[in-house]
Design a protein around this nucleic acid. Structure first.
Lengths: 146, 146
DNA sequence: AGCGATTTAATTGAACACAATCGAATTTGA
DNA sequence: TCAAATTCGATTGTGTTCAATTAAATCGCT
């Protein structure tokens, strides 16, 4: 063991984590292009498909994204006609976003994406489950701010 | 099982992978700030510490980064005085980068970073090993371009 | 009621990240 | 040999990503 072994790329968890995340996201791009969505717009739509009307703050919390990232994403989705943005009647500070009919229609076309990606990621069902569990363990253990 | 279950955030591996990668990288920022390095500059320096003089192309290959990302990173490291950039005598197209004395000195100060990060990521030795293996399995199975 | 603290998005600035393209240098192959 | 293809890096454009700040609205406390 050398004095600097801990600084080797091959010994740091952060590196394969960071690299594989980017590589996986890139796998989505060709499929998402057909839906005129970026990856970030896609995961935002996933929240809206599942939850319907929801506040921007909650979307950010679910996706671990702050307003600096989310604001332009939501504006872009509104511009494409996939969502509406409106202020809450009860609290004018709250931005409510909701999928439009066109936005909900996208869901149908998006259905084939997870299937295609699943084929490209060569893990067994069990491995994927283990990975999934470990990643959520990391996310859960992080110093949250709430 | 609903028709759209595959599109739920909670069923997609990409999501916790993407989110945890960003969160982990953010754990580095406060420590790296003391070294006047960004995370990308840090992993680039890790390659140079380990390999010494190396071509920009090889750095990009090791880090899974393309020239559009790497060019400004290497220029910035040169500006800080941590690396030199020069053209290969054998092939003028090749950009050689190498750590300076100041760059190598940084290594000493960087030693404590992996240790601190390790504490923040609440995984056992075994879990980290499993995660590591699965992530490299993903990276190895990706459609490479070479 | 009213003032200070808090909450929520939006904005700004710096740094990635990748696709697409370009230009220079080199290699290949007829 | 020499034109075509390839390689390598830089550049440009679009889209994140987060920190820090701002501004508006609301809440809480007296």
């Amino acid at each position: 063991m050398g004095r600097y072994d801990s600084l080797k790329l091959g010994n740091q968890l952060c590196f394969p984590l960071y690299a594989s995340a980017r590589e996986i996201v890139n796998l989505y791009h060709p499929h998402l292009r057909e839906l005129d969505l970026t990856y970030t717009q896609y995961i935002a739509m996933m929240v809206l498909w599942e939850r319907g009307e929801i506040s921007a703050r909650e979307v950010g919390k679910l996706l671990f994204l702050d307003s600096g990232t989310l604001t332009p994403v939501l504006k872009s989705l509104e511009k494409k006609g996939y969502i509406t943005r409106s202020r809450s009647k009860e609290d004018e500070r709250v931005l409510l976003v909701a999928p439009t009919d066109a936005g909900m229609a996208l869901r149908e076309r998006a259905l084939e994406i997870p299937e295609k990606i699943g084929c490209a990621v060569r893990l067994t069902e069990e491995e994927a489950g283990t990975l999934y569990t470990l990643l959520y363990k990391i996310l859960a253990a992080l110093p949250e701010d709430e």
